[in-house]
């Protein structure tokens, strides 16, 4: 009887999840596809977003996300290595891990506020793509660091001891040997950061602003697709049609990136299979 209830609950949860998933994405896809043309992707913003396209917004989104990932991946790898290297001091490591977990759960609006104070006002960068990128980098840094740290902790003890026995310096040990074992975690962390960056609105409202012109430098203001969707839906009467089209574009963008990531991950998995079978 217990088994039947378990199986029934599992199937019910499965169907509920897929029903919600298809209802949301289906609504966006079918509404967004109405009057959708590829010129929407290549035209510029017009009439508060009711007309024209989103080319400048796509460019701003890609710049903000790419720069945020560039900064966060480098810092997260170095931070994770630093924590792993000093992990012998258990008390400090525990405090650092707790801080990372707390930062991961901090609402994005708080990061937006901090980003506004530090980057826009204190550093004088104003509402700009770079302020938005750096704020996003701060926001995704804890998750990426945690994932890479898990990867480093799972490096086999034999490999660590082998490196010590040969008197390899920490730089060689991490950047020439262990880095090969945590490629998957770096990729997973980057993809999670990417997903969070593309979906982020609150943190960017305070930092990158609403600019719609084609950015000529990182110091220009620019809005991302998620801010554009929010603006059209909340502030622009009659903007719903283009909001749906922009949402569809965002979903397509995430889908393409997921496909690329999955392909790279599959290549890593194939490498691991070779290791297992040989």
């Amino acid at each position: 009887m217990k088994n039947k209830i378990f199986i029934l609950t599992s199937w019910l949860s499965f169907f509920t999840f897929f029903a919600i998933f298809f209802a949301v994405t289906g609504n966006i896809i079918f509404t967004g596809l109405d009057n959708f043309s590829f010129s929407f992707l290549f035209n510029t913003f017009n009439n508060s977003g009711r007309d024209g396209g989103i080319s400048t917004i796509i460019i701003s989104t890609l710049i903000i996300v790419a720069f945020a990932l560039f900064v966060s991946v480098i810092i997260s790898i170095l931070s994770a290595i630093c924590i792993d290297y000093f992990s012998k001091n258990i008390r400090i490591t525990k405090i650092l891990k707790l801080s990372i977990d707390t930062l991961s759960a901090t609402p994005s609006i708080v990061f937006g506020l901090i980003g506004n104070i530090i980057f826009c006002e204190f550093l004088g960068l104003g509402y700009s793509l770079i302020s938005g990128s750096l704020t996003l980098a701060l926001m995704i840094l804890p998750i990426q660091t945690r994932i890479i740290l898990i990867g480093l902790n799972s490096v086999p003890k034999d490999i660590r001891l082998g490196a010590y026995a040969l008197n390899l310096k920490p730089f060689t040990s991490y950047f020439r040997i262990k880095i090969h074992l945590i490629k998957k975690q770096i990729l997973s962390g980057t993809f999670m950061g990417l997903g969070r960056s593309l979906a982020e609105t609150a943190a960017l409202l305070f930092t990158s602003g609403y600019g719609v012109k084609m950015p000529s430098s990182l110091l220009d203001s620019g809005r991302t697709l998620s801010i554009h969707i929010y603006d059209l839906a909340m502030n622009v009467p009659g903007g719903n049609e283009n909001a749906y089209k922009s949402a569809l574009t965002l979903i397509l963008l995430v889908f393409i990136i997921s496909l690329i990531t999955a392909t790279i991950q599959r290549r890593f998995n194939l490498g691991q299979q070779e290791f297992v079978w040989n």
């Binding site: 490999i159 390899l168 040997i177």
Partner: peptide, 29 residues
């Protein structure tokens, strides 16, 4: 560590190429 080499119970080659397994410690030391 260079005068007293240590071979472990379980083979523990580094996750790099055969050549680099020998080249990395040699370069370092």
């Amino acid at each position: 560590r260079s005068k007293f080499g240590l071979v472990f119970q379980k083979p523990n080659p580094f996750p790099v190429s055969i050549y680099k397994n020998l080249d990395i410690p040699l370069r370092e030391n």
